[in-house]
């Protein structure tokens, strides 16, 4: 009897597994219906195999624990909405790594994530490849930041971290000056309090005046006047989310949380010239960063 129960359970599991693999239903929940998220969704659906059913909710607020096999949320708002509403498995894509711990405490049931930010190691690699002679890396921040981790990664190349916490609401200029005085390069961190459309002007002008280039976190920074940036596009993250989905379809398990696998760089050549910097073509830089990532891992 016990044997029969076991066999039955096995057949059931097998059937479930097959059903899982063949008819996985994925529900994507976007934080918003702006092109940023829609591009992600488009890229995701284009790369998805046909045996996975794909449904889309364009506004996080419209998610009300609809039944599905796997939920892929895009952005922080969607991730929180899903985490609050359901215990169904969640792949939180395109979220900053530091939001994950919080999200995890909130979420009942399986959860994993694809981060939006680049690991510190990769940033250190970029700095080393593009600006090998600039050893003092300045960082200004207002939210919490894993300073020891940054310091560790930079130390690999004998780079020093000059980190300053914003001391008050309207002290940006003074705090920035304090960082710039001691730095050879300013490394931007995603921090709206410091880097926003209003402040970017003074940050870029002040650093340029002192002959200090800014390394940004997106292509927009580079267009504005940052020297370079390493980042992942929504399309690249979507491809990674597809692989995670396929893994789930095959194994029924979510992969471990991941930093972006694919990434791009952008270099503002006009700014580089103005700083008198000789910088290799984008492809050559990417190749070197990949090599370093390999050898250092």
């Amino acid at each position: 009897m016990a044997q029969a129960k076991k066999i039955l359970a096995f057949v059931f599991l097998l059937l479930c597994g097959i059903a899982h693999a063949k008819e996985l239903r994925v529900l994507m929940v976007l934080s918003d219906s702006t092109p940023l998220y829609l591009n992600f969704a488009k890229s995701f659906s284009q790369n998805l195999s046909t045996d996975i059913r794909f449904d889309l909710i364009q506004h996080a607020e419209d998610f009300n624990a609809q039944k599905t096999d796997l939920i892929v949320s895009v952005g922080v708002r969607a991730a929180y909405r899903v985490a609050e509403k359901t215990s169904q498995p969640l792949l939180a894509a395109m979220i900053p790594s530091k939001t994950y711990a919080d999200l995890r405490t909130l979420k009942q049931g399986a959860i994993s994530a694809i981060y939006l930010d680049q690991p510190w190691r990769r940033q250190a690699n970029l700095l080393h490849v593009v600006l090998p002679e600039r050893k003092r890396i300045g960082v200004l921040y207002s939210a919490s930041l894993d300073i020891p981790a940054m310091r560790r990664e930079l130390a690999l190349y004998h780079d020093t971290l000059i980190a300053r916490h914003l001391s008050g609401g309207d002290t940006l200029s003074a705090d920035l000056d304090d960082v710039l005085v001691e730095s050879d390069v300013l490394l931007a961190v995603p921090d709206n309090e410091i880097y926003n459309a209003n402040s970017i002007r003074n940050i870029l002008l002040s650093s340029y005046r002192r002959g200090i280039p800014l390394v940004g976190v997106s292509e927009a920074y580079v267009r504005a006047g940052a020297l370079c940036a390493i980042f992942s596009t929504p399309e690249q993250l979507a491809v990674q989310a597809v692989s995670a989905t396929i893994t789930y379809a095959r194994t029924g398990k979510l992969p471990e949380v991941q930093f972006p696998v694919q990434y791009s760089i952008a270099v503002n050549r006009t700014v580089a010239r103005a700083f008198g910097l000789v910088i290799e073509p984008d492809d050559a830089i990417l190749l070197q960063i990949r090599k370093l990532s390999g050898s250092l891992r």
Partner: peptide, 30 residues
């Protein structure tokens, strides 16, 4: 928590748009 997270870092910090600051006329020729 949700409120806190919204104030905290989110993807808009990465994807925000900026004006062009260091334009050609601002930059000196090497």
């Amino acid at each position: 928590k949700a409120g806190h997270a919204a104030d905290d870092v989110n993807e808009s910090d990465y994807f925000q748009d900026f004006p062009v600051v260091l334009s050609s006329s601002r930059l000196s020729q090497p």
